[in-house]
């Protein structure tokens, strides 16, 4: 393993992503947590670039760092968010979960560590958007169209759920 620029870039991006995740767990204010997570999302976009997936990286920034994060911020602000106190009697549960997570990570890591596939030359970075577009509108066109339906359903569902019922509003 050589200290190439690519490696340096990966290391710094990975570090930012992990620090963002850890901050998510440790910060007390909800707003700060979400800001910390934005850094993680943007780092992940960088990781995508390293993996020759420019289009996915752009979508990542657009949707995660942009849309979802903003949506979450709105949700936070629309609800009561100053109550950051932890529930009682959860220390044991947290400890147990921590152990479980560490055990899970260890087990999966054993699998990853020995993962060694011969690297084949790929052409993903050449005209990435073109390749994606071709695949999406030819091979994967049916899932693509279904996704549009899914998004429509989600849109309508979200509006109906979140809509303040007229009658209830009158009652209150």
């Amino acid at each position: 393993m050589t200290f190439s620029g690519e490696f340096f870039a990966f290391m710094s991006l990975a570090l930012v992503a992990v620090i963002g995740g850890v901050l998510l767990l440790n910060l007390t204010k909800v707003m700060h947590m979400i800001i910390a997570l934005v850094f993680t999302f943007i780092s992940i976009a960088g990781i995508y670039v390293l993996l020759s997936a420019e289009f996915v990286a752009v979508v990542q920034i657009l949707i995660y760092a942009g849309a979802i994060t903003i949506l979450m911020l709105f949700a936070i602000m629309l609800t009561k968010h100053d109550d950051a106190s932890e529930a009682q009697g959860t220390i044991w549960r947290k400890l147990l979960l921590l152990l479980g997570v560490i055990g899970f990570a260890f087990a999966v890591y054993i699998g990853i560590y020995n993962f060694n596939v011969e690297q084949l030359p790929s052409h993903l970075h050449e005209n990435n958007v073109l390749q994606i577009g071709k695949a999406l509108y030819t091979k994967h066109v049916i899932p693509f169209e279904l996704t549009s339906v899914l998004l429509l359903v989600a849109l309508v569902g979200a509006i109906i759920l979140a809509k303040n019922d007229e009658k209830e509003a009158h009652k209150e």
Partner: peptide
């Protein structure tokens, strides 16, 4: 994204 939208709607 869809999940987040619906999830937050339910939350609201």
């Amino acid at each position: 994204a869809a999940e987040a939208a619906v999830g937050l709607a339910i939350l609201i």
